[in-house]
Design a protein around this nucleic acid. Sequence first.
DNA 1: ATAATATTTGCAATAATGTTGCAAATATTA
DNA 2: TAATATTTGCAACATTATTGCAAATATTAT
Lengths: 137, 137
Amino acid sequence: MADTADILKRNQLSITASSKQILDLFLNRPGALAHSDIEKNTDGSFDRVTVYRTLQTFVEKGIIHNIPTTDNSILYALCKDNCEAGHHHDNHVHFICDVCDKTICLDHVSIPEVKLPKGFTQKQTDVVVSGICDECK
Amino acid sequence: MADTADILKRNQLSITASSKQILDLFLNRPGALAHSDIEKNTDGSFDRVTVYRTLQTFVEKGIIHNIPTTDNSILYALCKDNCEAGHHHDNHVHFICDVCDKTICLDHVSIPEVKLPKGFTQKQTDVVVSGICDECK
DNA sequence: ATAATATTTGCAATAATGTTGCAAATATTA
DNA sequence: TAATATTTGCAACATTATTGCAAATATTAT
């Protein structure tokens, strides 16, 4: 609980009911969350707009990052190790389970190197693997 | 032009104004297209619904595939080599340019192998690299 | 602790995006 | 060319996202 406020302070964010609850949600969940997950799992007292704006702020501050998906949704994830250190690396693989539909950060699977053709400059690489997770197998 | 009809026939699809125009668009563009791009670049005579349904059919038939994105959009892309062979592999890397915002299929950059933790089964791997493309450098 | 200032929130309105049923139009098959 | 099958467009609806603004809340300085 103290963690939550600490992270917010460290990022120069106001400590409000919504920012605390939403950040808590990320801290206590292993996987990634979509906007709708957040609406479902907070007490419902927040306006949609507040959730949108909070997520946007968190992304800007680097507390969470978004994960590419092939359906038209945005998934947001926080990766505990990096986040508690105050800065975010996000150099790991994301896994989406076809059965339970959860997205999991595989913090210890690092992204492989990709060699680009001439003329291309690489800034970020996202790897999303889908299949069956260890809980659904 | 004959190509377009051929591909449609090969996939047992009706040859209509919309399916032809939309497929043509993919054949003549190097990058990926969002639904909105397609509406903009066809003559505007198609209903939104038709575009949705055409894209859906193309995906089902394997003519195009969708690309993961971090904004909440779906990008579709056709990869010439595979498509003309009638079946689709889609085992290549996608590149998103931060400058021109185009998404490009790097047909000749194959996806690297990813080793998952115990218990996870891998079905598909998507790799999305962002940075600066060869035209914007 | 309190007042002044800055930020965040919720509401309302609006826009954009995606889905479904059904009759008319078009394409395919015989 | 007629019969059959498929596709299209319209309308209605659902969901998702964005913006301005006043009220509420949080932060800062005293």
